[in-house]
Amino acid sequence: MNARTATRPRAAATPEPEESASQRGKLTDLAYEQIEEAIVTLQLAPGSSVSELQLSEMTGIGRTPIREAIQRLAREHLIMVLPQRGLLIAPIDVGRQLRLLETRREVERLICRCAARRATPEQREHFKRLAKEFEQSSRSGDDVAFVRADREFNELCLVAARNEFAEGAMRLMHGLSRRFWYLHYKEAADLPTMSKLHAAVASAIARGEVDGAGAALDALLDNIEAFTRATVLGDYR
């Protein structure tokens, strides 16, 4: 598969003194999305150093929104802020990934079940569309399209579940999980299988099947845990 750039088109930099609070908030969200995707898709390599200026130039966004995006990414353990040393893209630690999966399984099962129970009709239609996007990425082998659909799916689950406590916990895990998968999927994971497993969760939520959503999520995480352990053991069969 050919390498593809994942960063969205740069936003035009706005002179910071003229930015309203609303504009800055939108720019912070855009900066976060672009940097998070660059980290997840390994454009910013694990363990590499980066500066605020480099991130500003990469995204075309001013320093204040970049700074706020960095704070958010630091809370999610994707960037490490080192006093007097700058910024470090967090290294990948397989043991930590397995501990994350233990927590993620319980929290994400709750979120998926709540989403299946509480989603609005409009949100259920959105889940249906995402299920189709996952099926499409399974056929096309488009890993970047999958990563973007996965991020949209995760956000929709959090909104539809309407549980701010579970949402807060889950936000700390999404980026790390997707980056680990992206790093290893060509060796240990199967994109078509992963896409179909995501489609099954999205479809169950769309249909309002509470138990079905939980079971589909367990099947998805069983697959993720299997390839994570395969990474530890070096056994990709």
Rank of each mutant, 00 (worst) to 15 (best):
E225Q: 14
F180Q: 03
F165I: 09
H198L: 02
A189F: 14
L176A: 15
D190Y: 07
T228Y: 15
L156I: 04
E167T: 13
L220V: 03
H184Y: 15
N223I: 00
N154E: 08
E167P: 00
A161G: 01
H198E: 05
H198D: 03
P192T: 07
L183E: 15
A206F: 07
E164N: 09
E167C: 07
M170L: 11
A166M: 03
F180E: 06
S195A: 15
N163V: 02
A188T: 11
S177L: 15
H184W: 13
A188M: 09
A230N: 09
A226D: 13
A199F: 05
L191C: 11
E187V: 08
S195T: 05
E155I: 03
R151S: 05
Y185E: 06
A226T: 14
R171A: 03
H198G: 01
L156D: 04
A166C: 09
M194Y: 14
D218N: 08
A213N: 02
F153W: 06
L183Y: 12
A230P: 01
H198N: 10
E152Q: 14
R151Q: 08
R178Q: 13
W181T: 11
S203A: 15
G168Q: 13
N223C: 10
Y182H: 13
N163G: 00
R151K: 06
F180C: 04
D222S: 10
A200M: 09
A230D: 12
L191A: 10
S177Q: 15
F165A: 08
E187R: 10
D211Q: 11
M173H: 14
Y182C: 05
G214I: 06
C157T: 08
A215H: 05
E209N: 12
F180L: 08
H174W: 15
E209L: 05
L197E: 01
A215M: 07
A202R: 02
I205W: 03
L156F: 05
V201Y: 01
L197S: 03
L156T: 12
L191F: 13
A199C: 04
S195E: 04
P192R: 07
T231Y: 13
L220N: 06
I205F: 06
L191I: 11
F227K: 01
T231L: 11
E209Q: 06
W181H: 06
A161N: 00
R229I: 15
S177F: 13
A204L: 02
L221Q: 07
L183M: 13
R171I: 08
M194T: 14
E164L: 13
A230G: 15
